[in-house]
Design a protein around this nucleic acid. Structure first.
Lengths: 183, 183
DNA sequence: CTAGGACATGTCCCTAGGGACATATGAGAG
DNA sequence: CTCTCATATGTCCCTAGGGACATGTCCTAG
């Protein structure tokens, strides 16, 4: 049920259409909270029916822009402060790492290199974004300040994973003999 | 479809029952790849029907232990080497952070403190596990070596998130005035 | 000998999400 | 004037996952 609140939260920054929101979800949130447009449109209709949103304007090409209502704002705030955070994490790459022992040396090396590259790229992208923000390209509103914080999390998490993938390559596949610890 | 391969992978280490697997999933994998027992039992039955697993033994209390078949091993390896990694990440805490600007100072401080504590605790748990492994408590098989690598990822990711939550508290809510960058 | 608790396996239903497919509309290129 | 592309909104179906509920079985403590 987070898409719901994600949409409400984005709309709290100002009116937008489903299309706008879908773009924001794929661009900024793509790797943190993916959402496809069908779900977004469906949820927007539900939210409007419940009175948490209202149609602000109808533009060209059937465009409908939504505006959040007071009830909507109240609902996001309730979610933010009263509903427990869901810490569920589902990282397939980490699940796979449990089975590294089934891969042979070369496959594993290639795999880890690709993973490291993938995470490093993402971290890089987020870093550039952060740099632009810090240069003032997006202004200094509280909203962009929050986005800056989110981006920082992306940088840190992806950097951690990239470093991990590099580190993993230095770990010997098994140690049948004695006591030279890994670190 | 990763639960499927998660189960196959765990069974590649040796025969186990659904109950054993459910325990492993909640204990070690709980925060990386959660899985409830109903899904596990259902998937085991499917896998057995497909010939990727077979019933190794039937024990007391209706216990059924499964053994992976050659076809099963081949399937895990195929998954590990030929199927693209799914990098999907769905981190509600990061989605929430986009909306920090809607929370007031006190709520936010409390929230970030709780988050930092949560992540720090998890990182700590994983660290202890790693320390026990490094002391040799679980032996030096290739399987435990892989688990060590997985655990390291947990430590690094959760530490990164804990640090992030601490850092986020130092970020001013907005900067309407001038040029003292955040970092 | 009996009651509670850990072991062990399941059914059932509901929602969230992925992805294929469908369709309308306006702008700009040639 | 037509074609193509980006804009814009949806329907439909299927699977994965969460969670409540149900049931059987053995051990152990009192």
């Amino acid at each position: 049920m987070s898409l719901r609140h994600g949409l409400l939260g984005l709309l709290a920054e100002g009116p937008a259409s489903g299309y706008d929101l879908a773009r924001r979800f794929t661009e900024v949130l793509g790797s943190i909270w993916p959402a496809q447009h069908p779900k977004i449109y469906a949820e927007l209709n539900k939210l409007a029916a419940e009175g948490l949103l209202e149609v602000e304007s109808e533009g060209p090409r059937r465009r409908k822009a939504y505006r959040i209502t007071d009830a909507g704002v109240a609902e996001v705030k309730r979610w933010l402060t009263e509903v427990d955070v869901d810490h569920t994490m589902r990282l397939q790459p980490l699940l796979r790492s449990l089975f590294f022992w089934m891969m042979d040396r070369d496959e594993l090396r290639q795999h880890l290199e690709a993973e490291a590259r993938y995470y490093r790229d993402l971290a890089e992208q987020y870093s550039e974004y952060a740099a632009r923000k810090d240069r003032g390209e997006f202004g200094y509103s509280e909203q962009t300040q929050s986005m800056r914080v989110t981006i920082e999390a992306g940088i840190r998490v992806y950097t951690a994973l990239a470093d991990w993938a590099d580190w993993a390559q230095t770990v010997p596949p098994a140690k049948p003999s004695s006591s030279t610890g890994i670190h």
